[in-house]
Simulated scan of single mutants.
Amino acid sequence: MWSKVEALADLTAESFTEALEVSKRVVLDGDLYGGVKSPDDEKRHRELDEHHYREVRDLALGGNIKFFVSGGAPLSREINEFFWALGMPIYELYGMTEAGGMLTNRPGEVKVGSVGKCWPGFQWPGGRTEIKLSPEGEIMVKGPNVMRGYYNRPEDTAEVTRDGWLCSGDIAVVDENGFYTITDRIKNIIITAGGKNVAPVRIESLISEDPLISQVVVYGDRKKYLTALITLDPDGLAEKARELGLKGSYKELAGRAEIRSYVETLIAEKNTLLAKYETVKDFVILDRDLSIESGELTPTMKVKKKEVFQKYGAMLEKLYKE
């Protein structure tokens, strides 16, 4: 959408960037978080919405969609704020099939970057639903909405239930206002050689915000520092190649020093947003993207980390020997 903004919104990319900043102050800082809105910003936002954003909503999205929901994986805050500013709210949801579906987020109780607050438990028929965090930070659910068990799979049922509570396998933090933020799956947590617990999904999401990046897999359990396996988005790579005046196949471009230099700079920038023990010190760029066909991605495009580490672990281990 960003690459087509001039045609969709009848604004130059530079003007559109400036317009978004105005609208973020009105929609996010003002409307969503209760901040003070200047009359000039409000007037400008109304003009932008009527003459430009509406065109984007009509031409790119059909004009009838009022909001989106997102789930299954973290949504980039930058992308979320972009759509909120355009008048297309995105509600990040959290839920489980085993717990009757959606458990969090509702209109009027929104914090961008979180999955919102829990739904009121008393609304479930047959009793109250409870949600809590275990001492390890795992989301636990109990109530009439929780499954009785997996059909004819008692061992699997026993693995995810504890004293009547459903163990989600998801690690979260909750702020003083009750907004939940999912940090990672408990099985994905990396423990460094220094004993620090690292949630790789946040790091991976930060780096993959760039259009050049397709997949990021952070590595470093029991290591002194973190490294990463990087794959490139084919369209993003083609665009970056044109920008840099490069030619060649995916494999050839992935090996170019100019591409590595760009990724190096990108990771250095993202590292400034992370704690020292979360920073990525080195990386490998794979000469092809991960795929479902090769057994590295699930049908919903999630990385199968076990398979990836089995295939490419030696490449990552080499980074610790150089």
Rank of each mutant, 00 (worst) to 15 (best):
I213C: 06
A238C: 07
S294W: 09
F179T: 08
R162K: 15
N105A: 12
L212H: 01
E296S: 06
Y150Q: 02
D184F: 02
D170F: 01
R106E: 15
V217K: 00
N177G: 10
G35E: 04
A275N: 12
G313P: 13
L86H: 02
E55L: 14
W84L: 04
Y33P: 08
I285R: 02
D31E: 10
R54G: 12
T17M: 15
F67I: 07
A73W: 00
S214H: 10
M147E: 05
K4C: 13
Q310W: 11
K302V: 06
I171P: 02
A9S: 01
R185M: 01
G126F: 04
A99K: 02
M147P: 06
K306M: 09
N152K: 13
N80H: 11
V141I: 12
N197T: 15
F68P: 06
S261P: 08
A193V: 06
Q215F: 09
R256V: 09
V160D: 06
L246T: 13
Y180C: 07
S76K: 06
G236S: 09
A228C: 06
I182D: 00
F179A: 05
E204S: 02
E209C: 03
K111R: 15
L166F: 14
H52A: 07
S208N: 06
N80S: 15
L20E: 04
D175I: 10
A99I: 08
E176I: 15
K311W: 08
D29T: 13
L166M: 14
M315Y: 09
E293A: 14
I203M: 03
I90H: 08
D163Q: 11
E130F: 09
D282K: 04
Q215H: 12
E136N: 12
K196Q: 11
V308N: 02
G195H: 07
T129W: 01
I207R: 00
R153E: 15
G127P: 05
A99H: 07
S205M: 08
M88E: 09
Y150A: 02
K318S: 14
E50D: 12
T265E: 15
K24I: 11
V27T: 07
Y277M: 09
D156Q: 15
R106D: 14
G178A: 10
V26S: 11
R128E: 12
E155W: 11
H45P: 09
L75G: 10
A228Q: 01
E50T: 13
Q310K: 13
S168K: 01
K111P: 15
T104N: 05
A60H: 03
V115A: 06
A275D: 14
D40N: 14
I191N: 04
L286I: 07
E252P: 09
L229H: 01
V69Y: 14
A19G: 08
K311T: 14
K302Q: 07
V201H: 04
K304H: 07
K196T: 09
E98N: 04
K4E: 15
V216M: 00
G95W: 04
A314R: 10
H51N: 14
V26T: 07
V280Y: 02
F83R: 01
I131S: 08
A228K: 00
Y277F: 13
L316K: 02
E264C: 13
G95F: 01
S23Q: 06
D287L: 03
K302W: 07
E243W: 04
